[in-house]
Design a protein around this nucleic acid. Structure first.
Lengths: 338, 338
DNA sequence: GACAGATGCTGAACCGGATAAGCAACATGC
DNA sequence: GCATGTTGCTTATCCGGTTCAGCATCTGTC
């Protein structure tokens, strides 16, 4: 009851293992009739190539690795990651690549996992996400010599291949829209400050607000949870000159902020405008539906995966800049109260 | 610049490949001093076992497979899956197992993926989720002879190892609570009717309502999206004898339902009580916070993973029934209007 | 001092494929 | 008719580990 091997096929077909190998791989060296006979036998006995034996001959592992450094409780909350993974996956499986996934606790563990996978020949490449400012992982990955695609800004990705979208453009579009509505006191409930994209958004936000005459532009940092989003909102709305618009770095915080506003008897959008960053279905099921920064995350993931596969194939690959997030106005934004 | 192999270590240590293998695997057959010398050299040159070479000798692949049959847009919405995967992952990586993930379009593709993984020796076992009533995958998996854990009711898992929790208990606790509050018209906005656990909940709901004198117990089926949850709620609340309480099969629909109620100027919980099934952070950030059926999903996943690893190890493994979901009352439930 | 048994190592086979080299049988060119 | 090339196959080796049989060498026993 063992798995059939090419030796079994060879015996049945009355030829050598070598001939079987040629036949099964579409290589020249066997006649058409022999090839057909071998293929028929292989099909009949349900032969599959043993991936370990293939890999031993220097072939690819046909697998890419993704070590996610996120605690379980944050993972489930953010649709972003599932959408990204699902996009990556779609592209990978189209090219018969599998995804090896591991959830890790910190960057050290993440690097240990990649080092092991690469050292053991389990993966042909890897995907890096959530770049920090001054991220030590980049140089470590560079020294490993493994093909890597980074979902993050080129400024932080060193010699690794970046796949990113421009945060500045999205920030600008949002602030310009709010300023045009008349808002002059805008707050931002941002994510973790050590994340590179947070820093970039922070910077862009401050700059754009200054250039547009938005007199008060506050940024509050959180850990992306609804809880901290609610607390930040409560504090912002309790200040003497409270903001008339708040931009949130993800949608769960935006929903939490919306609830806080309602709890404080503020009308959204009459008294307060709200913008959510990632546009998941969540933004659309609350009342009012949230104005959000929309992106095609699965497509973003697919682009990154395609780049990685080219990199693994040894092609010359260029960095990829995805479309910036675009503002989708819904019911949560309006001119500020008179 | 090749990877170091045990042959390299053997050469440097002046011993044979066999001795090196014994030393590195903690097997008897080498002296303590030789073992130490070999380990030191291995460490120094950064040797890692080539997983393909190991696998070729009949060793395990140290990987389990999970093919998820869900469209991308549903995947991101439900925190359930990310939490489950994260729990599975935690247990797997604790035992140095990796998770091979693939998102597929339908059951046929799912089976093809498992067949390939198993045939190629890439995985040692698999995880089946989202059982349908009369699910053809079960018998297919049985015939493959691969170790499989099913997250789903024993009634549907055939000879595969089930890991499940009792839906009936959770339904009963919920309905009893609502009935005790005085509700006599209760609706359920359920998930896909072809899913086994939906059918079980449906059945339990009808039975419990009948036994408790809940005169009107309606069940509406949806596809789990907020959109359909909202539509179902709108229809329910527009009926002449509208329900005074609605139980939703997931939290995104519950949030959508809450918004619809507010949109229709109904007070929650004054006019309408709402219960959400899966308790993600989302339930707690909306106003009022949602009464929800709470479970430790990551722990559930971890239990399943542990069972699968035992199964792979050839141990005698018994089915596992997890704790039923427990009702966590919050602000969205109250007695019905007088 | 002869023999049994444990210890520590070597050499070789093996896992399941890929692949280079070798070799008949036959076709082609001049 | 002989060199030359092509086709279709076999044989042997390799990948990087594991594992088993074999063989000195040392230790202990009576």
């Amino acid at each position: 009851m063992k798995r059939p091997t090419i030796a079994d096929i060879a015996r049945q077909a009355g030829v050598s293992k070598g001939a079987v190998s040629y036949a099964l791989n579409g290589q020249p060296g066997v006649s058409a009739s022999t090839r057909a006979r071998i293929l028929a036998i292989a099909d009949e006995i349900g032969w599959r190539p043993n991936s370990a034996a293939r890999a031993l001959n220097g072939a690819r592992a046909n697998t890419v690795g993704l070590a996610l450094c996120r605690p379980a409780r944050f993972l489930g909350v953010e649709p972003f990651f599932m959408e990204l993974i699902s996009g990556i996956e779609g592209e990978l499986s189209a090219q018969s690549y599998a995804l090896m996934l591991q959830v890790v606790a910190d960057h050290d563990e993440e690097m240990a996992v990649y080092r092991r996978w690469w050292g053991e020949g389990r993966v042909d490449g890897a995907i890096l996400v959530d770049l920090h400012s001054d991220d030590s992982r980049v140089s470590e990955m560079e020294s490993m010599g493994m093909p890597v695609v980074v979902f993050g800004q080129p400024s932080g990705s060193g010699s690794l291949l970046p796949v990113w979208s421009d945060e500045g453009t999205a920030v600008r579009e949002t602030v310009e829209y709010l300023a045009a509505l008349g808002h002059r006191r805008i707050a931002r409930v941002a994510g973790l400050p050590r994340l590179l994209h947070t820093a970039l958004r922070d910077e862009a936000f401050t700059a754009v607000c200054a250039s547009l005459g938005v007199s008060e532009a506050v940024t509050v940092h959180t850990d992306y949870t609804g809880e901290q989003g609610a607390r930040a909102t409560r504090r912002l709305l309790s200040s003497p000159a409270r903001p008339t618009a708040v931009v949130y770095d993800n949608d769960i915080m935006a929903v939490a902020g919306l609830s806080v506003a309602q709890e404080m008897r503020l009308d959204v959008p009459g008294d307060l405008s709200i913008v959510a960053w990632d546009d998941s279905p969540l933004s659309q099921v609350v009342r009012p539906p949230l104005t959000a920064l929309t992106r095609d995350i699965p497509a973003y993931g697919a682009h990154g995966a395609r780049r990685l596969l080219s990199l693994i194939a040894g092609d010359h690959v260029t960095a990829y800049e995805d479309q910036a997030a675009r503002l989708t106005p819904r019911g949560s934004t309006a001119p500020p109260p008179a």
